[in-house]
C-alpha cells in the first residue's frame, strides 16, 4: 500500500547504531549489535528475524523497556528528533503509551485479569488525557467500535478471560490507539492467533493506518505478514541487520545469502515433491558469536574475508546488504 504520510522525508523514528547488551554469568550477550534504520511519519517498516535475532530486544529498546541485566550500551534512538536514550523516566512515560504504543504477541501480558477491559482502556486514556467519567466511557466504546469489537457497550464491563484470543488482541490494539500514537509497534501481533483471525487483525491494522495515519513498526518471524502490512523491511540475524530494502525488492530478489536461504526454506507449492533448500546448522550461541559476519558458519558462499565485518553495503538499487558479495 502507498505510504501517504512519508512526504517531506521527515523521519519519525531514527535508530542509529544501537547496541543493546545483557550481562550474564557467562559473559556479555550482544543481543542487538549495531543496527540502524528509520521509520518515516505514517510509514511502515517490518523487522523479520528468527528466534535470537534481536528483533524483540530492538522493540523493547525503543520503548525503553530493557531492564537489568540488559542495557543500551550505545547508539541513539531519535523519536521526532529527540534522543530517547537520555530521557528521564518521567519524560519517557509521557511518550510511552501516548506517542509510541506497543502491542505484544500475547494480549494477556498487556491485560490485567482482575479489571474489566473497558476500565483498562479507560486507564490508558486517563494516563495522558484529562476527561470526565462519561466522556471516557464514550471514548472507550468508540475505540472498541473502531477495532471491530461487536456490542462494544456490553464488552466494556467484560473481563479479559471472557473474550476470545482475537477479541483480546483487539482490546490491546484499542488500548494502544487510545491516545492516537504516532508510532505503533506490533511485536508478533498475530502469532498466537488462527489464520482467519490473523487476517481479521491485519485487515484492521491496515484500515486503521489509512484512517489515523499511524506509523507502524512490525516485528515478526513471518515474512508473509510483513508483505501484508509494510513497505520497507529489515532482515535481522545474530543481532545485526543482514539486509534492508523495500518489501518488494527483498522478497522478489533477496541479496543476502541468509535472506535467500530464509525465503528458499519456505514450503510452497512450487517446491512440492522436492527437498526444501534448508539452511544447515543452527543459530550460533550468543556468547560465542563468530567474528565478522554472524551468518558465516552457515553460509554456503562464505569467503576468507567474511571473518571481518562487511558493514552495510549498497548493491546499487537503494537497499543495504551486509555481505562481502556486494
Amino acid at each position: 500500500m502507498a505510504d501517504g504520510g512519508a512526504t517531506g522525508g521527515a523521519m519519525l523514528l531514527e535508530v542509529q547504531d544501537l547496541h543493546t547488551h545483557f550481562h550474564t554469568r557467562a559473559g556479555v550477550v550482544k543481543a542487538v549489535d549495531g543496527i540502524s534504520f528509520d521509520v518515516p511519519a505514517g510509514g511502515s517498516l517490518g523487522i523479520v528475524g528468527e528466534s535470537g535475532s534481536g528483533k524483540t530486544v530492538t522493540s523493547l529498546s525503543i520503548m525503553r523497556l530493557i531492564e537489568p541485566p540488559g542495557f543500551v550500551a550505545s547508539g541513539r534512538i531519535l523519536f521526532r528528533g529527540r534522543d530517547m536514550v537520555g530521557l528521564s523516566e518521567r519524560e519517557i512515560r509521557g511518550i510511552r503509551g501516548n506517542q509510541i504504543c506497543l502491542v505484544f504477541q500475547d494480549p494477556m501480558t498487556a491485560l490485567n485479569p482482575v479489571y474489566t477491559v473497558g476500565t483498562q482502556v479507560a486507564e490508558a486514556l486517563l494516563a495522558h488525557q484529562d476527561l470526565d467519567r462519561k466522556a471516557v466511557r464514550e471514548r472507550v466504546v468508540e475505540l472498541f467500535r473502531l477495532v471491530g469489537i461487536p456490542a462494544p457497550e456490553r464488552r466494556f464491563d467484560e473481563y479479559p478471560h471472557k473474550l476470545s484470543g482475537g477479541m483480546r488482541q483487539r482490546v490491546t490494539i484499542a488500548m494502544a490507539l487510545a491516545n492516537e500514537p504516532q508510532l505503533l509497534i506490533l511485536d508478533e501481533p498475530t502469532t498466537a492467533l488462527d489464520v482467519t483471525i490473523q487476517a481479521q487483525i491485519l485487515d484492521l491494522v491496515r484500515e486503521l493506518r489509512h484512517r489515523v495515519n499511524t506509523a507502524v513498526l512490525l516485528i515478526t518471524h513471518d515474512i508473509g505478514v510483513v508483505t501484508e502490512l509494510c513497505e520497507q523491511v529489515v532482515v535481522m540475524y545474530g543481532g545485526r541487520i543482514m539486509e534492508r530494502g523495500s518489501v518488494a525488492q527483498v522478497t522478489a530478489d533477496p541479496k543476502h545469502p541468509y535472506t535467500q536461504g530464509l525465503l528458499a526454506s519456505m514450503p510452497t507449492r512450487a517446491v512440492r515433491g522436492q527437498r526444501l533448500a534448508a539452511i544447515g546448522g543452527a543459530v550460533p550461541n550468543p556468547l560465542r558469536m563468530p567474528a565478522g559476519c554472524p551468518f558465516r558458519p552457515r553460509c554456503g558462499q562464505a569467503m576468507n574475508v567474511c571473518v571481518t565485518d562487511p558493514g552495510l553495503r549498497n548493491p546499487g538499487d537503494g537497499r543495504s546488504v551486509a555481505c562481502w558479495l556486494y
Binding site: 528468527e50 518471524h221 530464509l262 526454506s265 519456505m266 514450503p267 526444501l276 534448508a278 539452511i279 543452527a282
Partner: peptide, 14 residues
C-alpha cells in the same frame, strides 16, 4: 521451530 530449522525437519521427515 524457526523457518530455517523447520525446513531441515521437513526434509528429514520426507
Amino acid at each position: 521451530l524457526d523457518l530455517s530449522v523447520q525446513s531441515q525437519v521437513l526434509n528429514l521427515l520426507k
